[in-house]
């Protein structure tokens, strides 16, 4: 008897597993493959919540399904370079330029900008308030206060390295220099916990503000502009790329209506927009 109950429950469980298998497969088969677009992007567009607003709208309008892979700009660009993504949304113009020149990406379009800011503990122990980015970085290095770096080759990390290079300081291996190796949101949390300084894009900082004990201490420096471009991975170079989908996404990002949404995004929650639309402008 016990044996029979045991077998019955085993059959039940197997049935359960099987339905799961079938359903998953059905879900995978429901939409044709070419409907999928792989968007490789930076963590800031996802962590700030911007893409949660834009992607559903795009999917509804076009019928495509966007697979958003949120990585640092370094990984996103690498995926583009290998033809593993269809469209990229990144914020490291100088690194992107290389891909454009190599012909790995086409249809390179300016989308929006915001800016980087240097944030640190409310008391500002290093005293960088109001300084320009290079002065602030030099002060941090001189005083040896904790600085949390993304350390992940993301757009923000590239920008940070550029500032260090401009003042000819090599922070690598210094005791006060910590590399988080994580996204912007997680890095801000780490900076807050360790009472350290970090370079962040304004959007992610505003989105995280309620959770961190960090203030903006240096801002408005022209060197700290954070510029986002969208680009299609070159379908002529990589035959497996979804060129129609990539093109549709680029067009969507620079369309007037989308640009308006970008400009409005975050106003209700943070009092100021997180991104400023730029499509069509010359940078």
């Amino acid at each position: 008897m016990i044996k029979r109950i045991f077998i019955a429950s085993l059959v039940f469980f197997c049935g359960f597993f099987f339905t799961g298998l079938l359903q998953v497969q059905k879900a995978a088969a429901a939409e044709p493959k070419v409907k999928d677009i792989i968007l490789a992007t930076t963590t800031s567009t996802v962590d700030s919540g911007l893409l949660d607003v834009l992607i559903p709208k795009f999917e509804k309008e076009t019928g495509y399904r966007v697979k958003t892979i949120s990585a640092g700009t370094g990984q996103a660009l690498a995926m583009g370079e290998k033809g593993e993504a269809d469209v990229l949304l990144c914020h490291a113009p100088s690194a992107e330029k290389k891909l454009v020149d190599e012909g790995a990406v086409v249809n390179y379009q300016l989308v929006m900008h915001n800016d980087f800011v240097i944030v640190g503990p409310t008391g500002d122990p290093a005293g960088i308030k109001g300084k320009t980015s290079s002065e602030a970085f030099r002060t941090i290095a001189d005083k040896g206060v904790i600085f949390i770096s993304r350390g992940d080759d993301s757009g923000t990390h590239k920008k940070e390295k550029a500032v260090w290079k401009s003042i000819e300081v090599n922070p690598q291996g210094q005791k006060w220099y910590h590399e988080s190796g994580q996204g912007m949101g997680a890095t801000l949390l780490m900076a807050s916990e360790k009472q350290g300084y970090t370079l962040t894009d304004r959007g992610t900082y505003l989105a995280q503000k309620a959770n961190v004990k960090l203030d903006i201490l240096s801002e408005g420096d022209k060197a700290l502009l954070n510029i986002y471009h969208v680009m299609q991975v070159n379908p002529e170079k990589f035959g497996k790329v979804n060129s129609e989908g990539g093109k549709a996404f680029v067009e969507f990002m620079i369309a007037l209506e989308t640009q308006k949404i970008i400009g409005e995004f975050g106003k209700d929650k943070f009092g100021s927009p997180l991104f400023f639309p730029d499509a069509g402008k010359q940078m």
Binding site: G49, K67, T68, I69, G185, A186
Partner: peptide, 24 residues
């Protein structure tokens, strides 16, 4: 899986994402 919303997002990956969004 790539943590794609509505497609490959599972409880563990969603948790990681919400932490980095600051929604504890």
């Amino acid at each position: 899986g790539g943590n794609v919303r509505g497609y490959t997002r599972v409880l563990t990956t969603a948790t990681v994402l919400e932490v980095s969004k600051g929604r504890f």
